[in-house]
């Protein structure tokens, strides 16, 4: 009896599974139309780091909590990707209502600590507006942060003048007021689109 029951199930169960599985899988393809950036809620750990700021003081993730934060990896000698991205972020935030501007902070993490001293970093980030903080650290600290957000960076061999390029992520990681990862923005988004997402995130928490 048990055998017959089992025999019956070994034949029907596969058929049931084949029918049910695609239905289950479609749940994975839900597209969030409200955001211009890619929704990364739950995919990554919350914002946490141990770095130094452009005054040379040690800072951690909780030092900037309560604001919507945009994390970007780069280096000050970066020829195109970083200036373009930072200009765009500045454009997006400066278009915000002055009250809302206070709620947003850009964290620019230099992954080139050999060249980017805190002073140099301070001069660089000041050029891109007020709501931006320059951060850096020792290479292991930076590696740890990069690994936490599933990215990496690498150095090219220096040329005779000591100049070298640094490969790094081109994405902007956006965290909400609670430090939860929310969006991954590509630099091909317009300032307008970034602003739209930022406003939605700011209004969410207030």
């Amino acid at each position: 009896m048990i055998n017959r029951f089992w025999l019956h199930w070994t034949k029907t169960l596969p058929a049931i599974l084949l029918l049910v599985m695609p239905v289950l899988l479609t749940g994975c393809f839900g597209n969030d139309e409200d955001w211009h950036g890619k929704n990364i809620s739950g995919l990554m750990p919350e914002l946490e780091f141990d770095l130094i700021n452009s005054q040379g003081d040690p800072v951690s993730g909780s030092d900037y909590s309560g604001r919507v934060r945009m994390l970007f990896f780069g280096f000050t000698s970066c020829p195109d990707v970083c200036p373009t991205a930072l200009r765009k972020l500045n454009q997006a935030t400066s278009g915000l209502d002055p009250k809302l501007q206070e709620e947003v902070l850009t964290l620019f993490v230099s992954v080139d600590p050999r060249r980017d001293t805190p002073e140099r970093l301070a001069k660089y980030v000041d050029f891109f507006g007020d709501n931006i903080v320059g951060l850096t650290g020792k290479e292991p600290q930076l590696r740890e942060l990069a690994k936490r957000y599933r990215t990496t960076f690498g150095y090219e061999e220096p040329d005779p003048d000591g100049n070298y390029a640094v490969s790094h992520s081109s994405a902007i990681y956006v965290f909400d007021r609670g430090g939860n990862p929310r969006l991954l923005m590509r630099t091909d988004l317009s300032g307008e689109e970034i602003r739209h997402d930022l406003i939605a995130l700011i209004q969410e928490g207030s």
Partner: peptide, 9 residues
């Protein structure tokens, strides 16, 4: 891989 950086260029 573009967004998150490659191990080498």
């Amino acid at each position: 891989y573009e967004v998150c950086g490659r191990a080498w260029p």
